[in-house]
Design a protein around this nucleic acid. Structure first.
Length: 261
DNA sequence: ATGGTAGGTTACCTA
């Protein structure tokens, strides 16, 4: 089972780029972030006609997440538990039915800038809710993949120019500590273990501004965290970097794992 | 130190 995450930065603006990548990538399950669409506005039929099951959790203008799957989905849940007043659409879960069922948690973690401030407080509170949900998912002892745009640069080597991020909510010590608190529950950072001694990169995001792509001024903020039962099934990990060089690209590229499930 | 780009929305906001 090949499982991918892709922050597409607007599903309607990216419909061709996304369709082309889906045809080439051979993924079974794709979680999307920043669909920037309400559920009724998502081009559901376009993807259903191509053979995908579509589950969305959208909102007007910003944010919004979705799951596209070639395999059956069960027990779809929308929204991160822990705050009934939170109206931002950033989280969706489903169980993918294959030889071994896999629980998928797709997320778009708050950016948090500017920090300090209310947006940063929201980011940290959201991460604490994610930690609590993460503990429940691990307790299920299912294979679980928690994946998406975490808006976290875990370490200096995850940025081409770490010094440019020292005051940014993606890289502040408190943000990175909150990420480690989740990771150290027992998750495996699938991309990092592929090349544990790398001193620079790999990256998953290059800003549109200031020629970041042409200068390879990237950061790694899109992550796939595997529960122990999922890590035991891990075959392969990849970053589809060439997507950043295509027509009308997202500023993020797809990141994926292949599991023996 | 600044400004650079992109998408969605409705005159700015988010990233």
């Amino acid at each position: 089972m090949k499982i991918a995450t892709f922050n597409i930065n607007g599903v309607k603006a990216r419909i061709q780029a996304l369709t082309d990548w889906l045809a080439a990538a051979g993924a079974d399950v794709v979680v999307l972030q920043e669909i920037k669409s309400v559920d009724e506005g998502f081009p559901r039929e376009h993807f259903e006609d191509l053979g995908w099951t579509v589950e969305t959790h959208g909102q007007k203008g910003f944010n919004g997440v979705a799951i596209l799957s070639r395999l059956p989905l069960e027990d779809v849940a929308r929204g991160l538990p822990g705050d009934e007043a939170d109206e931002q659409a950033r989280y969706i879960e489903a169980t993918v039915i294959d030889s071994i069922p896999v629980r998928i948690a797709g997320l778009y973690l708050p950016n948090g800038n500017p920090a300090p401030g209310p947006k940063y407080d929201y980011k940290l509170a959201w991460m604490e809710r994610l930690r609590l949900r993460g503990a429940e998912l691990l307790a299920s002892e299912m294979p679980v993949v928690m994946l998406g745009d975490f808006n976290i640069i875990p370490e200096p080597r995850d940025a081409a120019r770490p010094q440019a991020w020292v005051d940014d909510a993606l890289f502040l010590p408190e943000s990175r500590a909150a990420f480690r608190r989740i990771l150290h529950q027992g998750w495996t950072d699938a991309v990092r273990i592929r090349d544990p001694w790398a001193t620079r990169g790999p990256f998953t995001f290059w800003d549109y501004q200031a020629g970041a792509w042409s200068r390879d001024d990237g950061i790694r903020i899109d992550h796939l965290l595997l529960s122990p039962q999922a890590a035991d099934l891990l075959i392969e990990t990849g970053i589809d970097k060439e997507a950043r060089a295509g027509e009308k690209p997202s500023d993020h590229v797809p990141v994926w794992v292949r599991l023996a499930a």
